[in-house]
Design a protein around this nucleic acid. Structure first.
Lengths: 312, 312
DNA sequence: TTTATTTAATGCATTGGATGCATATTAATA
DNA sequence: TATTAATATGCATCCAATGCATTAAATAAA
């Protein structure tokens, strides 16, 4: 294929050619194409030059195609059909689509936030498959490289190419086993710092906001355990003296099941926002638009429901 | 097919899209297309708008196509292949062509001028068919309406859309049967006018040049017979006292066969030009170009050979 | 055959768009 | 973190596509 020849050819003449073949009249072609008769006449002149043939001649029947034009007519029509197809906007039909999505989230997200999403997905888009991969903070800068379509996380310093949308807020709370010494008391920050703590790492080694907060007050807590999973951490502290700082939504979801006491975090805090994030490459992809809209709807409802108790 | 949408779309962006898919780089695509990097960047911006999708995003691998771009890639490639084919100039291969031509000529042309053409045609383009239709002067203005590809005639006041090319000259001579009273004498114009004449009409009723010439000298000839065929006229006058005025080439071709005497026309004359003519719609048609070149070559040779005796 | 009408082609002027140059921005690499 | 490479963008210029007015050519009607 001579792409160079194609690139120096005025392809915009081809629909004009087609309409001339259909109308057999410069004047009528002009009407169809919302141009003046002289404009179409000049387009025809350029078509004649392009194909090195008169293409149409005047007869009592109107502009009659030359043998060359007739020879070209089928190929032209098929080519324009192909182009028309090309320009037809993509649509995504959930019911019939077969599509694979890759979603990064924490185990908390996988166990609490996503089940309503998955339930709905299976109903509305039975042919769509979802693959969940563990969220790591480094993924914030590497969604593309890891072929990740969407992620749930809290946004901090995202790259320009990453787009996000908030799905709900949450705040930190402390959880301990029901029979923990701190379970019956109102914690102050110093008491909080004196207990051993478990920390959910999520693949990062960066200090979290909480430790910065303690440092500001000349305090430091002991991290007796580091573990990459939210729910695993809850299971562990339900059988130990360790304290765990987690989002309220997570805590309320598992407190009863793991016999845990939820204590207020011993400092005023602004809370944080959960978001879904995605790379800009998908921003207008119809399939992606549909999915993130569904996830947005479900996560906002789920997070709102989880935080009802918190507000009271 | 939405021809209007096609007509308002800048189809010239499509080869750029293709090269971007192949190169995965705005800079390299610019090099391939002989444009600057900013020009291609803006073309990409317009492609993004056209398809309502980013199409390409920057990754360590270069500009990576989005799912939408990948979805479009095959359709785009096939569409451009079709367009490439459309723009490939037509060729005419005589040996393999199967083509029909319609040629208008007199019976003189059919019997004398065309046989060498037909002989050569059957050798060089065995799949080409020729249909000969009788020439009438009205056809000069109606080649198109009668689907006539070519005609042989003498050109007079042809329409602008008719193109012609001279193939040879000829002059009028008188023919009579060998035993005609005028056969042994040198005619003057008055004697010429006194004999009864046969006239070849060719579908027209318009006065010929000869009768205008006689009128200018206060003379008038009697047309005792009108007949639309040259050769039939020769056969008839070989058995009558009528005189016939015809081109020398025709006369010399049949004089012996019909025992006819060729006498000089009793007036100085400029002679006339034979031409092949065709409608402008065929002017660049490769098949037509080939045929009229062949006919030109054969007719010029034939007419030159026929007029050798005349010059002496 | 002549005249009127219709349609296509062309001269001229205007305006908008496509491009190149220079530079800013962004992302990748060292 | 600094440097390099690649893409995106502001600005100016020039060319091309179009509309208007008109001419040319063909067809239709008288």
């Amino acid at each position: 294929m001579d792409i160079h020849n194609l690139s120096i050819t005025d392809l915009n003449l081809l629909p004009v050619f087609q309409v001339l073949l259909e109308e057999r009249s410069v004047t009528r072609a002009a009407g169809r194409l919302n141009l003046t008769q002289p404009a179409i006449s000049r387009n025809l002149a350029r078509l004649r030059s392009l194909f090195n043939d008169p293409l149409f001649t005047r007869t009592p029947k109107g502009l009659t195609p030359t043998p060359r034009a007739e020879e070209l007519a089928l190929q032209l029509h098929q080519s324009l059909l192909g182009l028309n197809q090309l320009l037809t906007p993509a649509t995504f039909v959930p019911q019939t689509a077969s599509h694979n999505f890759r979603l990064a989230t924490t185990d908390y997200g996988a166990q609490v936030l996503l089940p309503p999403v998955i339930k709905r997905l299976r109903t509305e888009a039975p042919g769509v498959n979802l693959e969940i991969v563990p969220w790591q903070e480094s993924l914030l800068h590497e969604l593309d490289q890891h072929d990740i379509d969407l992620a749930t996380c809290t946004i901090e310093d995202a790259p320009a190419a990453i787009h996000g949308r908030g799905v709900g807020s949450d705040r930190f709370v402390c959880v301990v086993r029901n029979s923990h010494p701190a379970a019956a008391q109102t914690l102050d920050l110093e008491e909080y710092a004196n207990y051993p703590h478990a920390l959910i790492t999520m693949g990062g080694t960066r200090k979290g906001a909480i430790d910065y907060l303690l440092e500001e007050r000349g305090l430091k807590r002991r991290i007796a355990l580091r573990v990459p999973h939210f729910v695993a951490a809850l299971a562990i502290i339900s059988q130990s003296d360790m304290m765990l700082t987690v989002p309220y939504g997570l805590a309320i979801s598992f407190a009863k099941q793991y016999q845990l006491k939820i204590l207020p975090f011993p400092m005023p805090q602004k809370g944080f926002t959960y978001s879904i994030i995605w790379h800009e490459r998908y921003i207008k992809d119809p399939a992606h638009i549909w999915l993130r809209r569904l996830i947005f709807e479900e996560l906002t409802q789920t997070l709102e429901a989880l935080n009802v108790g918190f507000r009271i």
